[in-house]
Structures are given as structure tokens and as C-alpha cells.
Design a binder for these strands. Structure first.
Length: 662
RNA sequence: GCCGGGUUAGCUCAGCUGGCUAGAGCAACGCACUUGUAAUGCGUAGGUCGUGGGUUCGACUCCCACACCCGGCUCCA
């Protein structure tokens, strides 16, 4: 047996080392800089500490701070520092789990006597964390058998529960990121004088010492259920963010500010687009005139495209008798999401509709259908009401009353695959017209224990969706068990201007409702056949899509959607008549334009105000313009105004931008 | 629904441990100014302090309930 091992680095080069060499020593041998930067390592894809001995030939990657892996390690280590700080400052605190997450980390705690953390506590904890970082404590790994682990965490019931789960072979517990292998591993934080300060159950790896951390910030405290179970005890979760440098942290905080600046709830108020009057109730929006223009244009364009794509338009009422939702299965499967019934005429119960599908089925069933009619596509901007739990309503993206751009397609089994392919094309093309162009797809499969229909039916539907999705060349992510009770679905996820993803369109195959309603069509063979239904909404809901567009555009809607496209500003009152003539000429061309004259203040103030309202074009007209029949064009986002543009040229420019939805 | 934090003028916010007529900036309105590319000046008006109870000589302030909002959890278009 050789005393040498071969280490293969990510760039493919190989090096020989003594048996038992650590990744830290490997880094050292490669370069001082790398040794200094190294946080942890990956050996054959497995996370390990820098201090772990290598005993066989290995593919080794040294993990450094700027990488995604490096951030994960330092966030996880920062979570340990948070736990140590809390345990120090709040004697008797129980600590549960503390993983790295996107942009940061969290740690869940249970404080004695049901105490809760306050904002002031966060500042104190942060200070203690900085002290720990300065103290340069080492992270030292130790592997224990189960019994020793349980003894070590005597009094820490959450840790003991995790150890029990692991001993029972539960993969779920391993996913918690805490433990691994035949026994459990723990990490001790050891101070410079050798004293152990804090021990946590953990799979690792960790940075060599706390001095490698520091660019972090505690963000907020929130309640969180132990193991994510609504019935389990509720813990106090502290969220933090952590980065490899102060600069990276500042950039992250800046991105958060940018997201806040775009928040549709804030912009909705500032731009006078919509509101949620308390008098109406939680999650119920009203659209103001400016928001109404945007919404109307969104809907009109959608109608036009649907008409071209072969959809027929239908309408249905907002309430219906109970029986309909019993037939559909909604009262069995979706009752929690429905408003309570109202009693009418003694004992008849009526429900607000949470979905439109049963109505469209009744339209289909109204007379005998021929195979020649299929695929039959019924479209409706259908207003539905869902009883969302009080804690979940959120601006326009999660409401209790919404309008879906809903359609149901009735197809034969043979047509289904082609229909799904062309449907997905249609969806993506329409979303692109609204300015979204970065997508990925998600395929949601059968929810265990909560689904109707046979496994074969689900498999068939899921396969058809998968084929359609894979034909698009977009990333496809699986969402196992995420389907609705009546069928699997594809959802289109869109990334907005600052990279956040939103669930937009959903396409669901449904074998169930056709059966429940016993609908059929007459085939070429003169026999009855069961059609398949496809449910689909492209905006998801008009409200949510509206909110997403507000954030995507940061309130600066493209010209075709802007509530006001142009403001005409006379330099002084003697230019007002001319300014008004410009307004009238543009209006005749269908431009949404208003004049803002001197009653609104000095020219500078009027320009500022128009800019704040994010109007795409501000036209300033003065002596030169009156004389030569021109306008001065100050375009949104442009550095310098353009002088002496003719009214006709300007009108053509606006028309072109509207037509191309630029 | 659960945990935590909130609610003062149209908007953003101040108002100390309970105590005199509750303040500011922006917006609105009026007057003056008549201006060539992001805030002219002066003045006026605007508040049942989220709602309802309670404690107190006295409540914007303390307590309770409810409504609504915010951050999470769970759930979801």
C-alpha cells in the first residue's frame, strides 16, 4: 500500500500527497492566497472540513468565500455563532435548527417561559455575535455514537429529537442539515484559551474559526413551527443575512432597498393605482382610474390574443347553489378555501365561487357535442372568491377576491398532446408581450392522500405535460406532490427585472371533472366518448399579474400600458393655447395626454411632478415651438430633452411604441 | 389560523414615564409670480389619534376585545 494519495483538483491537475494530508494542507501547498481564503472543501462532491484527513485518491475542491458553496458554509457557521450568542444571553434557551438559506441563514429557538425576541434583543445578539467573531473561536468537529449524542444534548429536546430521527434512519432529518452517518457529529466552538464555549449538533462543514465571519446582519424575528408542522410547538426564528465581505453585504442590503422601492403596494399608493379600503375587508382591492386604465388595457390585449387563438368567450355568475360544488368535488376537497355559505329561501345554500370550471362544464353539457367541435376553448375573466387565511393576504399577489383569465379546453384524448404544446407556445408568447421574457417551468405531480383519480390517469396526464414542457427548451423543475387534487400541472415561473421569480401561468390536465359531471361528445364512430379538460390561466389572476408588472417595471409602465402617456407643459400662460392644440391633436390620434399649466407651479416643478408620476413623455412648449409648430420632448429615462420635434413626428413615435408594445 | 410588530391629516412621520389649544414636511386650496427642462414665495384649510369597551379626577399614551396592515410559519393564483 502506497503512502501517497492522488488529489485531483477542479481544473483537472493532479498532485501527490502523503496519506492523511488535510484539505487545508493541500490549499497551503497550492498557494498562500488560497490557504488564507479556504473555508472548507468538497471531496468527491462531499462537504468536509479543512482539517479532515484525506485517506484515498480524491477529487478535491477547496471552497472559498465568493462562491455559492463558500457562502453556504459561512452562513451556516454564522448561524452557529447566532445560536451561541442567544444561548449566552438567554440562559435556558433551547436551540432547534439553523441552516443556511438563500442570502442568509436562520436559527429557531424556544426561550424559557415563552419569552419572545424583540428588535432590541436583535441588536444585543448581534453585538454578542461580533464579540464571538472577534474572539477567534475554532470550530472543532467531533463524532459521537448515538448514546453519547443524546447524553450531550441532555435538556435540549429538539436536538435529541433530531438524533432519534437519524437513528431511526429518517432521511428527512438528514435534510435538516444537522447530522450524518452512523452516529452524529457535533461541532464545538473552542476559545483561544482552549475553553469550549458552545456545542451544536451539526453535519458540517464549518469555517476553521469565527474570525472568518463578520459580514452579517440580523434581519428579523418571526414565529416558525417546529418541523414546519402547524400542530407542533411554535418557535422563535431569527433571520439573518451573511456575506463574504462588508461590500457584498452592503450590495445585498441595497438590493433589498431596490425591491422595497418597487413594492407594488407602495407604488400602488404613490401612483394612485389601487387600494384596499378597510371598509371592504382584507384582501379585497379596488382599482382607481389610473390602475383601471392599465388593467383594462391588459385585459383587452389578452382578449384579442385569445380570440385569435380560437377561444370563445363565456360568462358565469359569482354564486351558485351548493350542489354544483358537491358534484365538482370542491366542497370535499377545497372547502377550507371557500367562504362560508349563505342561506337563501329557507334551506338552499349558495356559495361564492372559488373557481370557474364547473360553470364552463355546464355550458359544455348544455347540448350534445360533436368531435368536430373539439378542441373547444371557453374563456372567461372570471371573478372568484377564496377564503384565504388571515395571515396570508399580501397586496395584490394574494387576495380574497380576484379575477382569473381562466379558460377550459375540452379535447379528445388524441388531441391533448398537440393542444398542450400549442398552448404552452401561446402562454409564453403572451407573457413576452407584457414584457416578461425569462422563464422556467415547474411540473407538479400527484399530491399523496389528497387526490382523486387513479394512478394510471395521473401518470398519463403527467407524461403529456412533461412532453409539452420539454419541447420548449426551458428549464424544467419537478414539484413532487404539488399538483391540485384533480390533476397535475405545469406552472410557468417568470423572473422579473431584478431577478425575482413569480408563479404566473398554470396549465392543468383534468381527467376527473369530466367524469364527475359525466360529460361526453359524439365521436366519428357515432359513439359517446369522454373529453379531457385542460384548465389554464395565463396571468394566474389579473390582480397578481398587475402587481407583478408594477414591480417588474418599478411603476414605469411601457407606453402602451401607461395610464397617462404624455404631459404637455406650456412654458408660460401665453403658450397655453398652443399647448392645448397639441393635446387635442394627440388625443385625436388616441394618445392619453393631458396639459399641466402654470397653476401647478414653475416649469421645473411641473417637470418634476410629471417625472415622479413616471409619465413616459413630458412635452415642453414655448415661443420657439409656437412659432414652428414643434414640441420639446423630455422622454422618461433620457438624459437630455430633444428640442424642435414636430407634432406629427412625435405622434408617430408614440404610435409606433404602442403598436410594438415597446 | 399561529407567533411577533404596528395603526396619529390624502402621503411620510414627531408627540418623553397619563396632564393645558395634538405638531412638521409633502400633497390640496387661495393669492402673488409667467418662468425653456426634476421642488418660487406667502397664506388657508385639513385630525371622532383604527373601532368598541374598561381603568383613572383626567387616556393619543395603560388594559381587554375586534378590524385592518407589516414580517414570518402553515397554505397558495
Amino acid at each position: 500500500m502506497s503512502n501517497q494519495i492522488t488529489v485531483t483538483l477542479p481544473d483537472g491537475t493532479t498532485r501527490q500527497y502523503d496519506h492523511g494530508t488535510t484539505p487545508g494542507q493541500v490549499a497551503e501547498s497550492i498557494g498562500k492566497r488560497l490557504a488564507k481564503d479556504a473555508l472548507a472543501a468538497k471531496a468527491d462532491g462531499e462537504w468536509i472540513d479543512l482539517s479532515k484527513s484525506l485517506v484515498s485518491d480524491t477529487q478535491l475542491a477547496i471552497v472559498t468565500p465568493g462562491s455559492a458553496d463558500g457562502r453556504e458554509v459561512l452562513r451556516h457557521s454564522t448561524a452557529h455563532v447566532l445560536a451561541q450568542a442567544v444561548v449566552t444571553l438567554f440562559p435556558g434557551a433551547k436551540y432547534a435548527i439553523g441552516p443556511a438559506i438563500a442570502d442568509g441563514f436562520y436559527y429557531d429557538f424556544a426561550l424559557p417561559n415563552a419569552q419572545t425576541f424583540s428588535q432590541d434583543d436583535l441588536a444585543k445578539i448581534e453585538k454578542e455575535m461580533q464579540r464571538i467573531v472577534k474572539a477567534n473561536q475554532k470550530f472543532v468537529r467531533e463524532d459521537l455514537d448515538f448514546a453519547a449524542g443524546l447524553a450531550l444534548f441532555n435538556g435540549q429536546e429538539y436536538k435529541q429529537e433530531i438524533i432519534d430521527k437519524v437513528r431511526g434512519g429518517s432521511a428527512e432529518a438528514e435534510d435538516a442539515g444537522e447530522v450524518s452517518g452512523d452516529g452524529v457529529s457535533v461541532y464545538r466552538n473552542v476559545a483561544q484559551d482552549g475553553a469550549a464555549t458552545f456545542t451544536d449538533l451539526c453535519r458540517g462543514p464549518h469555517v476553521p474559526s469565527t474570525s472568518r465571519l463578520g459580514a452579517f446582519k440580523l434581519m428579523r424575528v418571526a414565529g416558525a413551527y417546529w418541523r414546519g408542522d402547524e400542530k407542533a410547538p411554535q418557535l422563535q426564528r431569527i433571520y439573518g443575512t451573511a456575506w463574504e465581505s462588508k461590500q457584498a453585504l452592503d450590495e445585498h442590503l441595497h438590493r433589498l432597498e431596490e425591491a422595497e422601492r418597487r413594492d407594488h403596494r407602495k407604488l400602488g399608493v404613490e401612483l394612485d393605482l389601487f387600494s384596499f379600503p378597510d371598509e371592504i375587508g382584507s384582501g379585497l382591492a379596488v382599482f382607481h382610474p389610473k390602475g383601471g386604465i392599465i388593467r383594462r388595457l391588459m385585459e383587452e390585449y389578452s382578449r384579442k390574443r385569445h380570440e385569435e387563438a380560437g377561444y370563445e368567450f363565456v360568462y358565469s355568475p359569482h354564486i351558485t347553489k351548493k350542489d354544483l360544488f358537491e358534484t365538482s368535488g370542491h366542497l370535499q376537497w377545497f372547502a377550507d378555501g371557500m367562504f362560508p355559505p349563505m342561506e337563501v329561501d329557507g334551506e338552499t345554500e349558495y356559495y361564492l365561487k372559488p373557481m370557474n370550471c364547473p360553470f364552463h362544464i355546464l355550458i359544455f353539457r348544455h347540448r350534445t357535442r360533436s368531435y368536430r367541435e373539439l378542441p373547444l376553448r371557453m374563456f372567461e375573466f372570471g371573478s372568484v372568491y377564496r377564503y384565504e387565511k388571515s395571515g396570508v393576504v399580501h397586496g395584490l399577489t394574494r387576495v380574497r377576491g380576484m379575477t382569473q383569465d381562466d379558460a377550459h379546453i375540452f379535447t379528445t384524448k388524441e388531441q391533448m398532446a398537440d393542444e398542450l404544446v400549442s398552448l404552452l407556445d401561446f402562454v409564453l408568447s403572451l407573457l413576452r408581450d407584457y414584457g416578461l421574457d425569462d422563464f422556467y417551468l415547474e411540473l407538479s405531480t400527484r399530491p399523496e392522500g389528497k387526490a382523486v383519480g387513479t394512478q394510471e390517469e395521473w401518470d398519463e396526464a403527467t407524461a403529456a405535460l412533461r412532453v409539452a414542457a420539454e419541447g420548449k427548451g426551458l428549464d424544467l423543475v419537478m414539484d413532487e406532490g404539488g399538483g391540485a387534487f384533480y390533476g397535475p400541472k405545469i406552472s410557468v415561473q417568470a423572473r422579473d427585472a431584478i431577478g425575482r421569480t413569480w408563479q404566473m401561468s398554470t396549465i392543468q390536465v383534468d381527467f376527473q371533472l369530466p367524469q364527475r359531471f359525466d360529460i361526453h361528445y359524439i365521436g366519428a364512430d357515432n359513439e359517446r366518448h369522454r373529453p379531457i379538460m385542460i384548465h389554464r390561466a395565463l396571468f394566474g389572476s389579473v390582480e397578481r399579474f398587475f402587481g407583478v408588472l408594477v414591480e417588474h417595471y418599478a411603476g414605469a409602465f411601457p407606453v402602451w400600458l401607461s395610464p397617462q402617456q404624455v404631459a404637455v407643459l406650456p412654458v408660460s400662460d401665453r403658450h397655453a393655447d398652443y399647448a392645448w392644440s397639441v393635446v387635442q391633436r394627440l388625443r385625436a390620434d388616441g394618445v392619453r395626454v393631458d396639459m399641466l399649466d402654470s397653476h401647478a407651479g414653475a416649469l421645473g416643478a411641473r417637470i418634476r411632478r410629471s417625472k415622479m408620476e413616471k409619465i413616459p413623455y413630458v412635452l415642453v412648449v414655448g415661443d420657439d415651438d409656437v412659432e414652428r409648430d414643434t414640441v420639446g420632448v423630455n422622454a422618461r429615462g433620457a438624459d437630455d430633452p430633444e428640442r424642435g420635434v414636430t407634432v406629427a413626428d412625435f405622434a408617430a413615435r408614440v404610435a409606433h411604441e404602442v403598436n410594438t408594445r415597446a
